[in-house]
Design a protein around this nucleic acid. Structure first.
Lengths: 270, 270
DNA sequence: TTGCTCCTCACGTCACGTGAGGTGGC
DNA sequence: TTGCTCCTCACGTCACGTGAGGTGGC
C-alpha cells in the first residue's frame, strides 16, 4: 500500500523543510513518487521516508549533496560503507584541526609580542631533485609530505643520501591566491636518474632571513608574521619564493615539529 | 617604524588571501592603514599583522565575521574573553551533536525496518498552563526545556502538582518551514494565577496515535517517520498540531530519554 | 465560495573565489 | 617601455530561505 503524501505531510514525517524538499526535487536528489501533471503538486510515497531520513542525517553531518547522492547511488553495501567511512574520516581530521586551532588561540591572544630570533644566511645554488605542482592551500601539507616521501625513495634507490633537509619553495601566488606553484625538493650531491614525477632541479642561490618555527603547521602564520615584519621594517625584502626546511617533519606530538622559514632578502644585506 | 606593505606582501605575512583582504576592507573588518588616493592601492602597516592573525584564527574556527568584529571591538580583555568562550562553547555543542549524529548513523543504515508499536488514545480537553512562542528549529529543544522549567516553578508556587507529563504542541509550520508556533504546557487540576510568560490554556480533546521514542531528540525523526507512515497508510490522519510528552526529559545518558510522540487521527478511528 | 495548500519564479544569504577589463609604478 | 601588481566591477558558489504573486482542491 504505497500511500501518497503531500509535500507538507511528508515534511512532517521526515523533518525536512518544504523548501529543502523542493530543492532536492529540483536537483534530482529526491524526486517525489508522483507529480500531478496539471497542478504540479508533488506526491511522496511512504516508502520514500527512509531515504529522506538518510539524506537528513548526512546533511546534518554537512556531507555535500553530491556525496550524499553518491552514497545513495552506491551499487552495494560495501561501496556505500566506504563512502560513509571516507566522510567520517574527513570529519575526524577537521575535528582534530579544530582542536589544534582552539589550543593555539589562547596563546595567540595572550602572546607577549615575542620577538623571534632571525638569522641571515647566504646559500649557493644547489643540485636537487624536485616535484613541482600547482597546489591549493588546503592540500599543500599533504601534497608536500607525499612528494618528499617519493623523493626520498628516488634518492635512496640511486644509492645516495640527501645533502640537506626536506624542503619546499612556495610562490607568491600560493599565499596571495591560496593556490599556486609549490616545489618540494631534496638537495643531492651527484646527479641521478629522474623517475616518476621527480625531476632534476637547481635550487637558486639566495640570501635569506631565516627563523625557526616550533610546532604545528597551522601555527606557521606566527613565524611568517614575525619574520616578514622583521624583513619589511629593515627594508631587506626582495622577490622570490619562500623556502621551508622541514628539519623535524614527523613527530608524534605536533609541538615537536621544527620548520625553518626562509625569507628572500637583498644581496649584501646582513 | 610603521613600515607599509602592499596587499600582496601583507598576504604573504598573514596567510590571508588577497581576495579575503579586499573583502575585509570592503566590510570594514580590517581597513588598510593607508590607501593611495589616486591609484586606490592599499597599504598595510606591519602593526596590523597581529590583528590579521587573530582574524585568521577565528575564521578558521568558522566564527561568523560579525562576531569576529565584536571580539576585536571588545572594550576590555574580560569582554573579549567572554565572547571567545561563548563561541568555544557553541563549538563544543556542535561537536557533541556531531558525535550523536555519527553514532546514530550506523544504526540507521543497518536498521531492520523495525516496526514501532503504536497505541491509540482518546484524550479529553485538559486544563493547563502554557507558554507560547514562534520558535525556530534549532532553538526548539532549548526553548521548550526552559519554558517547561518556568512552568513547573509556577505550578509549584501555586502549591499544586502537575496533572500530567511535561508536554508540547508543534504546529505544522514548525516542521514545514522549520519555524512556527510551539506551545510548551503542563496539565493542571485547578486554575491558578498566571505569572511571567505562563498563561492558562485549554489543551483540546483529541484522538491520537501514540508511539514511544527512546533516545536522543536528534533521532526523533525515526519515530516521526514510523508513526506518520503508520497513520498515513491506514488513512487515519487529520489536521492538528503534533504533541510530544517528555516522560523522561533529564538523563545523564541521552539513550535514557523517553518521549511520546502523538499524531492526531480522525475521531472514531481505532 | 472561502481559505488553505501548493506552485513557480526571482532574489537574498554568507564569505569569499573567479574571471574580465583596465590602470599605476618601477 | 615592458610586464607585473594592483584596482574595480560583476557574477559564481553552496544549500537552501524569503518573499511575491498566482492557482488548485476540498
Amino acid at each position: 500500500m504505497p500511500a501518497l503524501l503531500s509535500i507538507g505531510k511528508f515534511s512532517q514525517l521526515t523533518h525536512l523543510s518544504v523548501k529543502a524538499l523542493r530543492h532536492y526535487d529540483d536537483i534530482g536528489l529526491l524526486k517525489p513518487a508522483d507529480v500531478d501533471p496539471s497542478s504540479g503538486y508533488r506526491r511522496y510515497a511512504t516508502s520514500q521516508v527512509p531515504v529522506a531520513q538518510i539524506i537528513h542525517r548526512f546533511r546534518d553531518l554537512d556531507m555535500p549533496i553530491e556525496e550524499v547522492r553518491a552514497v545513495l547511488a552506491a551499487p552495494d553495501i560495501d561501496a556505500r560503507d566506504r563512502a560513509v567511512i571516507a566522510h567520517l574520516e574527513r570529519m575526524q581530521e577537521t575535528l582534530a584541526q579544530t582542536q589544534e586551532t582552539v589550543a593555539s588561540l589562547q596563546a595567540l591572544l595572550e602572546r607577549a609580542e615575542s620577538s623571534v630570533p632571525v638569522e641571515y644566511r647566504s646559500v649557493p645554488a644547489m643540485r636537487a631533485i624536485a616535484i613541482h605542482g600547482d597546489i591549493g592551500w588546503d592540500q599543500s601539507v599533504r601534497w608536500v609530505s607525499t612528494a618528499l616521501c617519493e623523493l626520498r625513495d628516488v634518492v635512496a634507490a640511486a644509492g645516495q643520501r640527501p645533502a640537506g633537509p626536506d624542503s619546499a619553495l612556495f610562490s607568491a601566488d600560493f599565499f596571495e591566491a591560496h593556490s599556486g606553484d609549490v616545489v618540494a625538493y631534496l638537495p643531492i650531491r651527484e646527479p641521478l636518474e629522474a623517475s616518476g614525477r621527480a625531476e632534476l632541479f637547481e635550487v637558486p642561490a639566495a640570501n635569506l632571513a631565516v627563523t625557526l618555527h616550533c610546532g604545528s603547521y597551522r601555527d606557521m602564520d606566527q613565524a611568517y608574521g614575525a619574520l616578514g615584519t622583521f624583513v619589511v621594517e629593515r627594508v631587506l625584502g626582495t622577490d622570490g619564493p619562500i623556502r621551508e626546511h622541514f628539519l623535524v617533519a614527523n613527530a608524534a606530538d605536533s609541538a615537536d615539529l621544527r620548520t625553518e622559514v626562509c625569507w628572500p632578502i637583498r644581496a649584501g644585506a646582513r
